[in-house]
Simulated scan of single mutants.
Amino acid sequence: MFNSNYFVYITSNTTRSTYYVGVTNDLARRLHEHFQNSGDKKTFAGRYYCYTLIYYEPFTSPDDAIAREKQLKGWSRSKKEILIRKQNPLLKSLNSLVSGEE
């Protein structure tokens, strides 16, 4: 997983009622930033407490990662959920895969 330099990821809140799609070159750092911004009304992920990683895709090209992020952001919630559940059927937190923490 971590041989790639870029990631498209989806985070959610604890009730899995909201999804946030993002792209980064440092997944652990970005998840930490989402957690630190919890409750911050100025950011979407902060406003909805979306700091739990539930899906990711690795990329070697930043252009490919950005294109995929834009594609996923255009999808309906149901289409995103089908994609997520293929990798993570129970929508479990994947944060520990990245940071060693939950």
Score class of each variant (00 low, 15 high):
Met1Asn: 12
Phe2Ile: 09
Phe2Val: 09
Phe2Leu: 10
Asn3Val: 08
Tyr6Trp: 15
Ser12Ile: 07
Ser12Glu: 05
Thr14Asn: 12
Ser17Phe: 02
Thr18Ser: 05
Val21Trp: 03
Gly22Tyr: 06
Thr24Gly: 05
Leu27Pro: 03
Ala28Phe: 04
Arg29Asp: 11
Arg29Leu: 14
Arg30Tyr: 02
Arg30Met: 08
His32Thr: 15
Phe35Ile: 02
Asn37Ala: 11
Asn37Trp: 01
Lys41Tyr: 02
Lys41Val: 15
Lys41Thr: 14
Lys42Thr: 15
Phe44Met: 04
Ala45Thr: 01
Gly46His: 01
Tyr48Leu: 00
Cys50Val: 05
Thr52Pro: 00
Thr52Trp: 01
Leu53Asn: 09
Tyr55Phe: 15
Glu57Asn: 10
Phe59Gln: 10
Phe59Thr: 12
Thr60Phe: 09
Thr60Gln: 13
Pro62Asp: 08
Asp63Met: 11
Asp64Thr: 12
Ala67Phe: 05
Arg68Gly: 01
Arg68Thr: 12
Lys73Pro: 00
Lys73Leu: 09
Gly74Val: 09
Lys79Glu: 13
Lys80Pro: 00
Glu81Pro: 03
Ile84His: 07
Pro89Phe: 00
Leu90Val: 07
Lys92Arg: 14
Ser93Thr: 14
Asn95Tyr: 04
Asn95Asp: 10
Ser96Pro: 00
Val98Met: 02
Val98Asp: 03
Ser99Gly: 15
Ser99Phe: 01
Glu101Val: 13
Glu102Lys: 12
Glu102Tyr: 12
